[in-house]
């Protein structure tokens, strides 16, 4: 559904990805993994239309996102980011309701249908119990779930998440990732999230997009990468991911350990 063709990203002369192809299908949870500064956030910026690619194109169901209007794009791609929100006193329902903005009129009033979508989105992530609570008073994990509910209410085929679990404790992290996996399956959404937690990514995602920092993007199922690593193929992606750093990938633990 989401297709990347011949994509080159970066800023000016600094190229982060060169001529890469990839795709994201409906019902699929894909984890984007790479070291800090390798260009994960830049790729996500390009995918949500905030930054133009240096070359190549991104299309959703055959339509180039560069040709989409702001509203059109907002109906195709929703976003959840890392920010710890300081929004002031908004109710959970207010925030989730904002997800309907690409569909509402000039004043943003929610109609009966919009309200139904909002209620359903809150139920899907399990925050319907505190629809009236102030988001500022929620825990980080709960707040991130509210932001995911907002993305659901936006009703887009593609959901992009930039390190959505960065500030969360282990329990909330696992909860949020499992939730995202469930939503991808049940609602047939293409969910792409950047992640630092390699073990969770290997366990929970359908496919991985790895960015080893050589301007390439390596796509494949976790099993493929693990097998590649087990067979000790030279240049296998899991070893390449943090090459030159003082870590190695441990196939039993399914995670990186110190040298």
């Amino acid at each position: 559904m989401l297709k990347i063709e011949g994509l080159t990203t970066g800023y000016g002369s600094r190229v982060l990805l060169r001529n890469v192809d990839a795709s994201l299908e409906r019902g699929e949870l894909v984890a984007l993994i790479g070291a800090n500064g390798v260009g994960k956030s830049t790729l996500l910026k390009v995918l949500r239309g905030e930054l133009s690619p240096l070359e190549g194109l991104v299309d959703i169901d055959g339509r180039n996102i560069a040709g989409m209007s702001r509203m059109d794009l907002a109906r195709n791609v929703s976003v959840v980011n890392t920010d710890r929100l300081e929004v002031g006193a908004l109710s959970v329902e207010d925030v989730v309701g904002m997800g309907r903005y690409p569909y509402t009129g000039f004043l943003g009033r929610l109609g009966r249908e919009d309200r139904a979508v909002v209620a359903e989105a809150m139920e899907a992530v399990g925050v319907e119990g505190f629809a009236c609570r102030n988001v500022a008073e929620l825990s980080d994990g709960e707040r991130q779930k509210v932001m995911i509910a907002r993305a659901l209410a936006q009703d887009t085929p593609v959901v992009l998440l930039d390190e959505p679990t960065a500030f969360l404790d282990v329990a909330s992290r696992v909860e949020v990732l499992s939730l995202l996996r469930k939503l991808a399956k049940e609602r047939r959404k293409g969910v792409l999230l950047s992640l630092h937690d390699v073990a969770s990514a290997l366990a929970l995602s359908d496919r991985l997009w790895l960015m080893p920092g050589d301007c390439s993007l390596r796509c494949g199922a976790p099993g493929d990468f693990l097998r590649e690593h087990e067979e000790k193929r030279p240049g296998n992606a899991l070893d390449a991911l943090f090459a030159g750093r003082k870590v190695r990938f441990d196939g039993h633990r399914m995670d990186y350990v110190g040298l």
Binding site: L73, V77, V87, L90, M98, G99, P102, G108
Partner: peptide, 15 residues
């Protein structure tokens, strides 16, 4: 209201 969520969220919702 969209701006309350910050520039990035506001833009992703079509503002």
């Amino acid at each position: 209201n969209a701006l309350l969520l910050g520039r990035q969220y506001a833009e992703s919702m079509g503002v």
